[in-house]
Design a protein around this nucleic acid. Structure first.
Lengths: 240, 240
DNA sequence: TTAATAGTGTCTGTCAGACACTATGTG
DNA sequence: CACATAGTGTCTGACAGACACTATTAA
């Protein structure tokens, strides 16, 4: 209650996406409390006005507490706010989407934390990965939030370097092209793809680094240029 | 307070834009109460959980109460949410932007309502139009919200038909091109512009309607095709 | 006639897609 | 050698920008 007005509930929900088994997958988290106890939903939570500086900080905190992830690419998606989406009352969900390389998730969720042995994180959150195109319905309006996020990621993939945030630190151009193709669900022409990547000027070859092992010509290894590193991703603004 | 968590304040702010005197202008509304009493800000207000169905409905209500406008093009912009933007506490602003033809605003704000003579709307809100590029600072974080909106409108103008919502019901292609140029602040090639408009397939010539009067060849009059009328605009979704 | 704006024809440089070609590793 | 994938050369059709040209009115 503020100035005589009852206030809506304010939450932040995060659509965390990764590429696994050749498909775009979303992280679902199991709810502990009503409404929908035990069901799998997008990771979300209340804004904590006493500890969160802003909505982005709330998203970072929630993502870390529910998945252990520290700093994936994170960007505001859209706000979903109406009377019916949550049975507890008129509610606002400031939705974010996040991209993370699967190798990074895998470390976090399957390997016990060695850095602080005294701290018990065995109760680490229950996360389930689901292919985004196999999900038919989710509690609240999370299905719609998910669809909005996937649609946004796919369309930004058409004209930006967004999928770079799904790559490991070192990768080849063929691997990068595969990631684009898996996100979009369609194949791309090799020459055109490489021209685009070169124009974007976001990656650079690692001198002398070649990927050996295949029964074929070894591939040049690339990395993201410094100024476009993952740490800067948080600060990136909407292009349009 | 919900579930033991103090809740943020939730408001909706609207960046209402029009084209007047050859430039993009924004509607500012004079605040009545603290904080910043008497100062000019973006029209905004609380979400009323008892009367608003959703955030869009709140934006419509706020816009109507502060400007008298019924149904301009209205679309969610972005949500600004942090601890510092409002001195009353941790606050959320779900920001919208709206486009309206100036002739329509002019009717509403300067002509007394004749439809319901018994109802007094003489106390109609104080609105001031300011060129968007002449504004250097606004209270709260409204400067940033304004800049985000203007930037979004300009970039969408580059690849969409957004400025159509700034046009009167009947217009010529030259007038439409002028509007695009005024929004963008740069001139466009006539041939290229007309090709684009034709491809978008959003407007149609009005049979037999020519704009007479000038000392030159009369221009064909156009209108927005039915399926793209202003009444549908509210339901339109983000392209990307 | 001139002036002014509406509207069209058309050349040209750029560039994305297509695809063939060369390069270089393994077995 | 065959084979597989990496990486490059290059043709071509589509198309955006540029701009000249025609059309149609008023005075």
């Amino acid at each position: 209650m503020q100035n005589g007005h009852p206030q809506p509930i304010v939450t932040v929900d995060v659509v965390l996406l990764t590429l696994k088994d050749g498909a775009l997958q979303v992280a679902l988290s199991q709810r502990e409390h009503p409404p929908h106890p035990g069901e799998w939903t997008l990771p979300g939570g209340w804004v904590h006005v006493d500890e969160d500086e802003d909505a982005l900080a709330a998203a970072v905190r929630i993502l870390k507490s529910k998945t252990g992830l520290q700093s994936p690419y994170l960007e505001q998606l859209q706000t979903f706010a109406n009377r019916h989406r949550d049975s507890r009352g008129w509610s606002v969900s400031i939705a974010y989407y996040a991209l993370v390389p699967y190798e990074q998730v895998h470390e976090r969720l399957s390997v016990p934390t060695r850095s602080k042995p005294g701290k018990n994180d065995a109760t680490h959150p229950r996360i389930q990965w689901r292919g985004v195109d196999s999900i038919r319905s989710l509690p609240f309006d999370h299905q719609k939030i998910l669809e909005t996020a996937v649609s946004r990621v796919r369309s930004k993939t058409l004209y930006s370097s967004l999928p770079i945030h799904l790559m490991p630190k070192i990768f080849t151009l063929s691997q990068l092209q595969n990631v684009y193709e898996q996100v979009l669900g369609s194949s791309l022409d090799k020459r055109t793809f490489r021209r685009r990547i070169e124009e974007l000027d976001l990656v650079e070859p690692i001198p002398g680094a070649l990927e050996q092992g295949g029964a074929h010509r070894p591939a040049q290894c690339y990395r993201v240029k410094r100024r476009h590193g993952r740490e800067l991703a948080l600060a990136e603004k909407n292009l349009r």
